[in-house]
Write a protein that binds this DNA or RNA. Structure first.
Lengths: 224, 224
DNA sequence: CCTGAATGTTAGACTGACCTAACGGGAGTG
DNA sequence: CACTCCCGTTAGGTCAGTCTAACATTCAGG
């Protein structure tokens, strides 16, 4: 069975379950999946049951949701497609890095394996997408993540942005406006714990920027 | 309502109904649609009924199928998408002109209006797809067809291929092998009426080629 | 003009995806 | 320790798309 035999929602479920464990350990909940896909929890519950029947996830009622090996394989294939497509849209079609997510979300269900191969060749086998996320090799595993969340970065040490979570398109547009993008260099001024605010300074800029915790959690940095 | 509000099969039905009248007058039959989409006639009958309910086609039981103005608009939009995508796949991703049809068939349902616009710009507003078919302008009508079918071309007069129907992928591959493509120059040697064979000579080739009627109907030529 | 083959339609069933509404389980609080 | 509230699940409904099987229509040949 190849990934193209699955329905688009099924592919989305697998990808989301896998993605939940890419940057943190906590497994995803039915509610969170419903929220992200814009459907009701009952719909997701239904879908998970179907996936379990196909042997792609294991799930006991009210229990945690885990991918089987087969499920993980399909999930990684979808992630590969998504990230290659994002890279393609930016490099070939001139999209902004903050506007490719939704387009890739649809295209990933439509492109053939042949087209993915040709895109990979045209782009000369890229390893990171426009947000800095690693692109899994065909049939393989993604490169391990690198860096720490901005919210956990040491103050006063120059760092470079390595990835920005593409989960929230509005946040991406906001970051793009501020000039925060992969490869941007900055220094954390300070963390204010109870206000949940991280103050950063962009190299060559006048003013400092205050980021809330959702923003500071979405940006990964690595020391220069 | 935009074309993206329709289901993929609905978009396909509209496109096929429209396409049937592009190169000949005879309207399409339910059976032919079923055949081309690889489904049973009852499925198409059902689908047509749904389209009629949405005001996109007019259809009395056992009667002919006609597009309404709204239906035609959607159909032309799908044809534009299809042909732009085919051109894109050949020019940017290096597909052969004989292998783009199926890929475009799927992609046309997935790409956004934005992506179509960007592709159109990247290709500098092409007017013909790789098979020589006219690409309708946005919201507009396709350029009128040009040329005659090979089966109806005068013998002994040098002509150039202007379009090749993309309806049958196997036939396209066969043409590609023979060296028959848009812009190929040739001369019709003779038509043999009762054998339904057209003999042609490709400029600069040793041997003549015999084509059956389905092939000679699928190729359009124009005098040099 | 009748009739039968070819073609199209309807009926009834299934699946996946969605919904709303009702119900069940589990975790923290009084 | 029980209760309550949140979350997830189940039940039951709708819709599009598909099928098979049965039925209807049309038209061309006899």
């Amino acid at each position: 069975m190849t990934v193209s035999d699955l329905t688009a929602p099924a592919q989305d479920y697998l990808k989301m379950i896998w993605s939940a464990t890419e940057w943190s350990e906590s497994p995803i909940t039915v509610g969170a999946m419903a929220e992200r896909m814009g459907v009701k929890p009952s719909t997701v519950s239904d879908g998970i049951r179907r996936l379990a029947k196909q042997g792609l996830v294991t799930h006991a009622p009210y229990g945690s949701i885990e991918l089987t090996d087969a499920g993980r394989e399909h999930a990684v294939e979808m992630v590969r497609r998504h990230r290659l497509l994002e890279t393609f849209l930016v490099q070939i079609l001139g999209y902004g890095w903050d506007e490719v997510h939704e387009e890739a979300e649809v295209l990933e269900h439509a492109v053939s394996a042949t087209m993915i191969r040709r895109i990979d060749e045209l782009l000369e086998h890229p390893t990171r997408d426009p947000h800095g996320d690693p692109i899994p090799s065909p049939g393989g595993l993604p490169n391990p993540p690198e860096g720490v969340r901005l919210a956990a970065a040491d103050p006063d040490r120059p760092v470079t942005i390595t990835r920005i979570s593409d989960a929230d398109p509005d946040m991406l547009r906001y970051f793009a406006e501020l000039g925060l993008a992969p490869d941007t260099q900055l220094t954390v001024r300070a963390h204010r714990p109870y206000a949940d605010i991280t103050t950063i300074h962009l190299d060559g800029r006048e003013v400092d920027i205050d980021l809330g915790s959702s923003a500071a959690e979405a940006i990964w940095v690595v020391g220069n």
